[in-house]
Simulated assay, not measured.
Amino acid sequence: MSDDIPGILKDAESKMSKSIEVTKDEFTAIRTGRATAAMFQGIDVEYYGAPTPLNQLASLQFPEARTVIVTPYDKTATTAVETALRESDLGVNPTNNGDNLRVVLPALTEERRRDYIKLAKNKAEDGRVAIRGSRGNAKKAIEKLVKDKEIGEDEGTRAEKELEALTKKHIEQIDEALAAKETELATV
């Protein structure tokens, strides 16, 4: 952390922005009606005793909106990839064709849409918590500067108000992204 107010605020803003990026990335992994590569990013496959990201072990092709062809680079990893897909939170049951796996994403039911919206809300809350954590760290740094008499109390109060405004702005951005994701999930 910096030991001046502009540095502290800049550092806090940078961390808050990263929290928003992470939250938006997690939103892209939540399934909508169409198959995307982002949905498969968080899937790890147990490969020779080590968890390995699916995209490093197989290629993904999307011949249709809800169909994915997963072709492992190493044919011996096919069963491990199949198991990882089956155990993922996508709710899919891949079909093994020998050379590749065919994954047909089921149509979203109303109940599944509600589950995904709930999941999106949890991811948004995780993002808000991360932003508030960044605010807390910055606030402690500002309070330490005031306590050590490096800045005056008025300057510390002003900095804390700026920090609150930054926090509010970033939390609003997460709320906007959540609202967009909820709308996307709710449309049939």
Rank of each mutant, 00 (worst) to 15 (best):
D126N: 11
K181E: 04
N100I: 00
K140T: 09
V104Q: 12
L166I: 03
E153Y: 08
S2H: 15
L101G: 03
K15R: 10
A138E: 04
N55A: 13
E155P: 05
A50C: 08
E162G: 14
V81P: 06
D25M: 08
A29I: 02
N93S: 15
A107S: 12
E111Y: 01
E46Q: 15
A124D: 02
A38P: 10
K121L: 06
Q61W: 13
R128H: 04
P63W: 04
K121A: 01
V92I: 14
R113L: 04
Q41C: 09
V104E: 12
K169P: 08
P106N: 05
A159M: 09
G7L: 13
T187Q: 11
G133M: 12
R31E: 06
A35M: 00
V104A: 14
G49S: 01
G136N: 03
V92D: 08
R66M: 12
G152I: 04
T36A: 13
N100S: 11
V22I: 10
S2I: 06
K140N: 13
N93F: 06
I131R: 03
K139Q: 13
G136L: 06
E150L: 12
I171V: 13
N96W: 05
T95M: 10
F62A: 12
E184W: 00
L108P: 02
D11A: 08
G49N: 03
N55W: 10
I117F: 00
Y116K: 02
K18I: 04
L163P: 03
V104S: 07
E64L: 05
I30Q: 02
D44L: 12
K24H: 02
S134L: 00
K123R: 06
R158M: 03
D148L: 13
A165P: 12
R132M: 07
K18D: 12
E111M: 00
K118R: 01
E176C: 01
M1N: 15
H170N: 14
A58K: 08
K147Q: 13
N93C: 09
T28I: 10
N93M: 03
L178V: 01
N122W: 06
R135W: 08
L90Y: 05
D148F: 12
S19Y: 02
E184F: 05
A38E: 10
P53E: 11
N55P: 01
G91I: 02
S2A: 14
F40H: 01
I20L: 11
S19V: 03
P51V: 06
Q56R: 13
I69S: 09
E21D: 12
Q41E: 15
E64G: 06
R86S: 13
T187E: 09
G91N: 08
R112W: 07
R86Y: 15
T95I: 12
A50L: 07
